[in-house]
Design a protein around this nucleic acid. Structure first.
Length: 687
DNA sequence: TGGCCTCGAGTTCA
DNA sequence: CTCGAGGCCA
């Protein structure tokens, strides 16, 4: 009887270990989570009833023991070496490594290429796992390479690390080396949960991993979403060492240890460069942070021949990418005044090299963001530039805050008046933004309004950029968009860096912009809450400017997607005599468009279909694709949802493509899009 | 009323 | 790209 319970317990452990392996190591679960939970609970129950059957390697025993007083030192039997870093950050750094190896091995130019194992350099914490007869007996940090700290209790809580190896006859001793880290998505999720519950979020995945492993209380470490990838071995006994590094990793994987699938065996230097570039391109979309890649001579024989230089193996090198996160100092917090008068705080940073560029500014968005980060002038901050291009302040390193601490930064206190025009500033109840009340009296807002008017999606006046607008406004040559059409050669030629030729070019661009569309014109006016899409809706609905001007709030609400707020913004804009005047002046200056009958319904083959564009198409710009889809009656949205009908994907498509695949949205390439568009061009002849 | 789904607006650097 | 917030539908 008790025999059969012991058997059941053993069977359950085997099953649970197997499903752990499928889930955490192979990332392809075989059974639903609920089924796994059921097995786990059954084992827990049996162990509770029969404590004599509990073994330390049981999957239920991950979090055991009490908080420690401190960590015991562990002498590594085989030292944990560091890897030398290739100094040349360019892809050519790989060539230097290959050249060094060949020289060292005294190879001639016509000898065959060397085989390398390429893998990722994870941004985490190096750990040594010691398995004796298949059971995890000890986990230690690297420390100084000779002696680390015993962190077994914490490491046992990491779900993807097997407590028992998957082998009938496990080696007497197997030390596995690898990196503990926190995957990005898990990190974000953990932090979101912490913020919700008022807990302290982790500063970044790296510190989070290191900090978790050094928790004295394993119960805390167990809460952290730690993960692990093996990349090598230390001491082994009773194990037939495979002949190459890549085969060692294969063997570890078979024993149930997680090994990243982002690895490759390549021949010669071109292979290294290719791996480096491939990973570099995909770096942002990997679900974890890496510093770079690692190249290792694959053959263990060659590794032995190459040996070591002062504790660094000669047969391996780390080839880093530009850092994605860096520490820098907020030298000052200033504000910028935008088109709508919003005062946007900007951190002026001590320039740092992050993600391949030097960053010296980062937006702080608004007061709420400043409060959330509690960033103050003089603070040390972590700056990140990933996924997107725009740098952001991730967190303040409070330990490094200067003493005495600088005061909390309050926009309203620091800037009771607009720094540009001196008008008072206000924060509307319920709004995050603090705004300058100066309106178009404020030169900053006027400049932004002009830039918006001239922008590509509005009137498309080429060459009218920030520099020029600054001068035109500062010299008093232009106050309203209408003034642009009254500029002559005499005025323009006075500007800095404006010789005859560029002046003529600017005037020509202004002239050209007179031919436009009603939608562009409405968008160009810069009415609050009226962007490109709403402008198009308005143009389509009313057909003519006069019809729009005549519409009251009620009439405006008839337009699709226009509700009370947007209707009020529009009505308010046109109730301002000054604005009506500018509109009339623009028409008088010759700005014109083809007016159409009001259209209440979209026609065309693609009517009612929603598209999302992502990536770079081979023969069309995004704008062209958008125009053509819209011409056929389709809509182009910015993000993928279940309402999306098609996703048009080009080269280097990013997260939107992944989302589309998840939601099962039809994915088109350029050709398929053209096929959808073309019958439309023919079909339209029938109307 | 709540929960999507969009749109608008602001943003960095070379 | 990512917020915040407006609009719409259940």
């Amino acid at each position: 009887m008790s025999q059969s319970i012991a058997e059941r317990v053993r069977a359950l452990r085997e099953q649970i270990n197997y499903h752990n392996y499928r889930y955490y190591v192979l990332d392809s679960p075989e059974i639903p989570d609920a089924e796994y939970d059921r097995l786990y609970r059954e084992l827990e129950a049996l162990e509770a009833e029969h404590p004599e059957l509990v073994t330390p390697d049981s999957p239920t025993r991950r979090v055991g023991g009490k908080p420690l007083e401190g960590f015991a030192p562990v002498a590594h039997r085989v030292p944990m070496l560091s890897i030398r870093t290739e100094t040349d950050i360019e892809a050519t750094g790989a060539l230097n490594f290959n050249a060094r190896i060949r020289r060292e091995l005294k190879l001639k130019d016509d000898d065959p290429p060397i085989e390398y194992a390429c893998e990722l350099k994870f941004d985490g914490l190096a750990i040594n796992l010691r398995y004796e007869h298949g059971v995890l007996v000890q986990a230690a940090t690297r420390g100084d390479g000779e002696t680390g700290e015993d962190v077994t209790q914490n490491v046992r809580t990491i779900r993807c690390i097997p407590l028992r190896l998957n082998a009938a006859k496990p080696p007497a001793v197997l030390e596995v080396r690898g990196e503990v880290f926190i995957p990005r998505p898990d990190f974000e999720r953990y932090n979101a949960k912490q913020r919700e519950s008022g807990g302290t979020p982790l500063v970044n995945p790296r510190n989070g991993a290191a900090g978790s492993i050094r928790q004295l209380d394993p119960a805390i470490a167990a809460q952290r979403p730690l993960s692990f990838y093996a990349y090598g071995v230390g001491e082994t006994a009773g194990w037939k060492l495979p002949p190459t590094h890549s085969r060692i990793l294969d063997a570890l994987l078979e024993l149930g240890l997680p090994v990243s699938s982002e690895r490759a065996v390549v021949q010669g230097p071109q292979g290294l460069v290719q791996f480096h570039d491939d990973i570099g391109r995909r770096r942002d979309s990997l679900p974890f942070d890496i510093d770079g890649v690692v190249y290792k001579v694959n053959s263990l024989d060659l590794q032995t021949r190459l040996g070591f230089v002062s504790r660094e193996p000669r047969w391996a090198v780390a080839h880093k990418f530009p850092p994605e996160e860096e520490l820098t100092v907020v030298q000052a917090i200033e504000v910028q005044v935008g088109r709508t008068g919003a005062l946007t705080p900007v951190a002026r940073l001590k320039p740092v090299f992050v993600g391949g560029v030097t960053v010296s500014n980062a937006t702080l968005h608004n007061q709420d963001e400043i409060d959330r980060l509690d960033v103050r002038e003089g603070d040390s901050v972590i700056v990140r530039r990933a996924g997107d291009v725009i740098p952001e302040v991730v967190a303040v390193v409070k330990d490094r805050r200067p003493q005495p601490a600088p005061v909390r930064f309050e926009i309203l206190q620091r800037y009771p008046a607009c720094p540009v025009c001196g008008s008072h500033v206000v924060r509307q109840p319920g709004e995050a933004a603090i705004r300058c009340s100066g309106g178009l009296y404020c030169p900053a807002q006027r400049k932004q309004a002009l830039l918006h008017f001239a922008s590509r999606r509005a009137m498309d006046i080429e060459g009218l950029g920030e520099r020029l607008v600054d001068q035109l406004v500062d010299l008093g040559l232009v106050r309203t968009p209408a003034d642009l059409y009254r500029l002559g050669m005499a005025k323009v030629a006075n500007l800095e860096r404006m010789a005859e030729k560029s002046a003529a070019k600017l005037l020509a661009a202004i002239e050209k912009s007179k031919h436009t569309t009603l939608a562009r014109f409405i968008f160009a006016l810069g009415i609050r809450n009226v962007g490109e899409t709403t402008a198009k809706d308005l143009a389509r609905h009313f057909g003519s400017l006069d019809a729009l001007l005549a519409a009251d709030e009620e009439a405006l609400m008839q337009v699709p997607d226009v509700g009370p707020v947007v209707a009020q913004s529009i009505a308010l804009f046109f109730s301002e005599p000054h604005n009506r005047e500018v509109v009339e002046q623009l028409r008088a200056a010759g700005v014109k468009w083809a007016e159409a009958a009001p259209q209440r319904r979209q026609l065309g083959a693609l009517a009612g279909k929603t598209f999302v564009l992502t990536g770079t198409l081979p023969n069309m710009t995004r704008d062209e694709a958008k125009d053509r889809i819209e011409a056929a009656g389709g809509k182009v949205a910015g993000s993928v949802s279940k309402k999306t009908d098609y996703v048009v994907a080009g080269a280097d498509a990013g997260s939107k493509l992944i989302k589309a695949q998840e939601l099962g949205v039809t994915i088109l390439d350029e050709d398929a899009l053209c096929r959808l568009l073309e019958p439309e061009a023919q079909g339209r002849l029938d109307f």
